[in-house]
Design a protein around this nucleic acid. Structure first.
Length: 563
RNA sequence: GUCGCAGUAGCCCAGUUGGAUAGAGCAACGGUCUUCUAAACCGUAGGUCGAGCGUUCGAGUCGCUCCUGCGACACCA
């Protein structure tokens, strides 16, 4: 039921067609405070057309309106404020949610079209840091939001499993490595070797030469090089998968850079054939001056390929394999310019994916204002943060709910939920100066706050004796309940907006608002009282619980029934 | 230097396509658990929305100029 449309029609009939219903509809807004009604119409825009002051017009609308759909309609200066019929609307909203359950808010805008999402993309032999968390959880949430909007997302973990760093790693391993150590704690030791390499090559520049040779061997299929590379890749993936399991994230494909390696020559050939490639300072570039961009470097002076080449191969492969309507890259904002170049090159090549390419940037994570760097050992390990948070959650559970069964599972859901929610709560583009203490807070605007509201709702439902599903009247008029109802009613719009903006924070912010409104209602109204409205109250609690759980699901956060 | 992003309460952030007195959370102070989980609720205090012009009936929101911070600017990804 579109109440804005009802208002637009009502206003339109009063102004006698001098302003179109669509124009009126577009101007209708939601007042910031409920004191000003549920929907309001600013009469300013009619002022010119009708040659009257907005105050007079507002009063005329009130005098002539057909107010049967509303509790009341009042003029407040230049505004006309509409108060909806709370009982009628609450009944209708709750009934819809209880019927559709977790599918409330689903839409078919995507028409089953495929969207590829390039996300997470950790580098082999390097630990996942908080930076990878962002790409992973943002991509994961966007995938869920896309699905709710009728799209078919394909989550592709574009692993960093190729490149000159493997020459360095092999060199370092052969110099200082130990097989047992790597088997015991692969990432930890591989990183140690990598860091040591970068320390020592400052004194021993010849190490760089060795590394180059090993990478060359790897490219040429030398058995020892390939064996080590495969091994590093395998143990790294195992370690990554443990983290992904904790986060509850799964991928459709793991086509890393090595996967596209053999397709690079085709890319270069195609570029040559299309006469897009030109020499510049010894390197091969695609000129993009007509797009007002710097040239894209395709091949280095020594003829070696670069990441653009691989990304072009990736785009071609995805076009051919999935025919996606959109091609998303969840990658840090520092690469914005690069993605403009990539898009421009794809466009010149006439590839389908050019139009649908969207870079989904997110802000940089720093520690004490400094950029993270594996090389310099300046990293915040994702696993450690998650473990710490789970530990903290466990502690709180032991304190606050000692009788809870399944403490460890719930601690996992709450602890991980806090970190994931904390990352998704703010606009993607905001940069974050990481602070562990800040991340481990479970009070106020946090994931656990929303989870807690859901758990309390569940708790009430467990204790309820009556069978509210049989109720045919969900009318509520209580003010606190009304705020909750209005938020529930807004959920489908939230789902659409989050999708249009590729912005999980829209859902996170919404879930906080709903949880807050519900907590307020819960604090002031006793639900389990035997009276005429009991069924309606329980139905509302059930609806809230459904929407909170669904909101958290869209963010990739679990909603335990008890905590 | 050029381009991009950002600047809202002590801190961290909301603020839909311009609309009514700029809102939360944290931190501070005070109150609420024999009653549906106090990870909660209620209250107090806290602001020249970076600065200045402009467009408009109306600007945190749009335009221009400037200031500050971060990022990017070909042989890393």
């Amino acid at each position: 039921m579109d109440y804005k449309q009802i208002v637009a029609d009502a206003v339109s009939s009063v102004v006698d067609g001098k302003v179109s219903t669509n124009d009126i509809y577009a101007k209708i807004e939601k007042p910031k405070t409920s004191a000003n009604g549920d929907i309001s119409f600013p009469a300013f825009i009619l002022s010119k057309e009708l040659h009257k002051s907005p105050q007079v017009i507002a009063q005329e609308i009130v005098d002539n309106i057909n107010g049967e759909s509303f509790e009341k309609v009042v003029a407040a200066g230049p505004y006309v404020n509409f108060f909806l019929d709370k009982g009628k609307v609450s009944h209708q909203v709750i009934e819809t949610v209880l019927t559709e359950e977790e599918h409330f808010g689903d839409n078919h805008q995507g028409e089953d079209r495929v969207v590829t999402i390039d996300m997470s993309s950790p580098n082999i032999a390097k630990p996942m840091s908080m930076g990878h968390l962002r790409s992973t959880v943002i991509g994961n949430s966007i995938a869920k939001i896309l699905t709710k909007n009728g799209y078919k997302p394909i989550k592709d973990n574009h692993l960093g499993d190729w490149g000159t760093q493997f020459g360095k790693l092999i060199t370092a391993y052969l110099k200082w490595g130990s097989e047992e150590d790597v088997k015991r704690d692969p990432i930890h030791y591989l990183v140690q070797y990598y860091i040591r390499f970068h320390k020592e090559d400052e004194i021993h520049p010849e190490y760089d030469e060795e590394a180059r040779e090993w990478f060359k061997k790897l490219e040429d299929g030398d058995p020892e090089a390939v064996h080590l590379w495969k091994w590093f890749r395998e143990v790294s993936l195992e370690a990554f998968n443990q983290t992904y399991k904790k986060l509850g994230v799964e991928f459709d494909t793991y086509n890393g850079e090595s996967f596209y390696n053999e397709k690079l020559q085709d890319v270069v050939d195609t570029l040559k054939k299309d006469e897009l490639l030109e020499k510049s300072q010894g390197a091969s570039v695609v000129d993009l001056s007509d797009e007002n961009l710097n040239p894209a470097l395709i091949l280095k002076t020594d003829g070696a390929s670069l990441y653009v080449t691989r990304d072009i191969a990736t785009a071609i492969y995805r076009d051919e394999t999935y025919h996606p309507v959109m091609n998303l890259y969840v990658v840090g904002s520092e690469q914005t310019y690069y993605f403009k170049q990539l898009k421009a090159v794809l466009k010149k090549m006439g590839l389908d994916s050019a139009a649908g390419l969207h870079h989904i940037p997110f802000g940089l994570i720093t520690v004490n204002g400094k950029k993270l760097s594996t090389r310099h050992g300046n990293i915040v390990l994702l696993n450690e943060v998650l473990d710490e948070s789970v530990k903290m959650a466990k502690q709180q559970i032991v304190e606050k709910n000692p009788d809870l069964k399944d403490k460890d599972r719930v601690a996992e859901e709450v602890g991980v939920g806090a970190i994931v929610f904390g990352d998704l709560k703010n606009s993607r583009i905001d940069s974050i100066d990481f602070n562990l203490q800040e991340q481990l807070k479970f009070e106020g605007e946090t994931g656990p706050y929303v989870q807690y509201a859901h758990a309390r709702a569940q708790s009430i439902l467990r204790k309820a004796k009556s069978d509210y599903i049989n109720s045919d009247n969900y009318a509520l008029t209580n003010e606190d309940a009304w705020e909750v109802i209005k938020l529930i009613q807004a959920f489908p719009e939230i789902v659409k907006r989050a999708n249009a903006e590729f912005e999980p924070s829209v859902v996170a912010k919404y879930s906080l608002k709903l949880a807050k409104a519900f907590n307020k209602y819960y604090a002031h109204t006793k639900i389990l009282v035997e009276d005429d409205e009991l069924n309606a109250r329980l139905a509302l609690v059930k609806s809230v619980s459904i929407i909170l759980k669904e909101s958290l699901r869209l963010l990739g956060v679990k909603a335990p029934n008890e905590m």
